[in-house]
Amino acid sequence: MEPVIEFTNVTKQFKGFAVENMDLQVNKGFVTGFIGANGAGKSTTIKLMMNLLRPDEGEVRVFGLDYATHEKAIKERIGFVYDGNVFYEGMNLKDIQRIVGPAYRHWDGALFRQYAEQFELPLNKAVKTFSKGMQMKASLALALSHQAELIIMDEPTAGLDPIFRRELLDLLQDIMLDGERTIFFSTHITSDLDRIADYIAFIKKGKLMFNQSIHEVAENYGLVRGSLELLDRDTEKLFVHVDRTASGFEALTSDVRKTEDVFGEAAVIERASLEDIMYFTNRSDVQHV
């Protein structure tokens, strides 16, 4: 499988926070959803992908190219959808297009107008009057109008109403149809991912916990329930985290098959939702303290 984005041992330190030794591959032609709690390092990782931040150590390659020598060539092929408004507030879309468009060799003005029409975006109205959803659409229209092969989005669905969120996901599905495009987007709304993601990358406190296909995630992770007698030092090793109550335990396993072998019929194993996985994994160090 051809990786579009490749992180090799990437480390970026901040005061009190760090993305550490990250190895990440984003595969061509698929949608990768990037999940993690607030402050887990999603935006930092995306900024590293966009060269808005530079790694202290390790290497970031996009389309197999490095930023030091091919920055322009890389960015020519990326459409970036921003978290928040980065446009001049008083300006309208027509003027913003005049600034953004000429920067790209493959800018398609007609396509941009088509998207603006499809998204019902007024071209002559100041962007500051746009709702959050409209700003997102504007950002997306700009990202789609230069034949970008890779679309990177930072929290595109945050703050959007459910109807527009659904519309956006349908639209993303449409633009994936030709199989040439790759989408990488961060979110903490996991239901978005069930709908369109092929891969799930999960980050916790600056560390990549996993990057698996949605089928692998469904096969490997399971929610286990049973009575407390089943738990001992050995069986607990099967779990990412265990929650105990008076009536029994609930735990997350990342190895459903082995758990089935060990417990047989004694425990109930159900499919874990992404939210379960996030919840239990985030609590996992509570257990170790």
């Binding site: 920055e71 960015k75 020519e76 507030e89």
Partner: peptide, 18 residues
Amino acid sequence: AFDEKTNVNVLLNSLPYT
């Protein structure tokens, strides 16, 4: 003064410019 008011550096640096 305009540039200072917005997050324009993020915009410019995501476009194909060095």
